[in-house]
Design a protein around this nucleic acid. Structure first.
Lengths: 118, 118
DNA sequence: TTATCGTACAACCAAATGGTTGTGCTTCAG
DNA sequence: CTGAAGCACAACCATTTGGTTGTACGATAA
């Protein structure tokens, strides 16, 4: 069953796309979506930047709802949730659909031309 | 026929998602994808900001390849091209796919458990 | 021809971004 | 108990961003 979800707010979409506009963050998302064991420090080991920098990236992703952090002993496990990805993808799909609908409307007009009321 | 397209560079994706991380720009994309007559100034009339600001937004979208500008008399018509939207959408789809594949792999493991080689 | 429209571009500004280092607090290992 | 691992957070910095105003220039309508 497809759930009717209320459309995301502008601000939510801003944070979503903004958080994806960075290769490091996209790579983090890729890792956690693939199910890699992902504490913050295990993620930080893989990038050429400080631990704090990676920590900030994870915070940005969490703020955007793309990942969530969970206590696990003294670690924080980073888990991806694909629902936010789907929201972004749905918006892109709608924009693409606007494009395709143009031709559908054009075809309709050509098939049933209104009388030139000039 | 589906064309094998080389994967976009990190920088290209940065610009793509960055350009979408702004409600004004998303709205511009929506308008031009819907086929609205869109000179830069006719777009600028619709937003509560200066002409130069809208002009910059269009430039950012053009830089990301989401729209292109074309001479038309003394105007510059803004036209959307959905291919870049598709690139962004493809990335999101791949990330979501990673998530779903996790369960497929898990199912495979459960269905055919390897001998505990410890 | 001349005034004006549509655009481009530079300079400037406040705020956000992406990075750093340092400090301190928990939680675990020895 | 003590030391270290893992993390959070603040302060700081350079650069980018999103906005402004002002100036200039080609195309056009009168």
């Amino acid at each position: 069953m497809v759930v009717l979800q209320d459309s995301p707010t502008d601000h939510e979409l801003d944070r979503l796309f903004r958080s994806l506009a960075c290769a490091t963050r996209r790579d983090i998302v890729r890792r956690v979506m693939a199910g890699e064991d992902a504490s913050v420090s295990s993620l930080a080991e893989r990038y050429d930047m400080s631990f704090a920098a990676v920590q900030k990236h994870v915070a940005v992703l969490a703020e955007a709802g793309l990942v969530s952090k969970h206590h696990h002993g003294r670690e924080r496990r980073v888990r991806g949730n694909p629902e936010q990805l789907a929201k972004a993808r749905a918006l892109l799909a709608r924009l693409e659909q606007l494009w395709t609908e143009r031709f559908a409307q054009l075809d309709a007009v050509l098939a049933d031309p209104p009388p030139p009321q000039a």
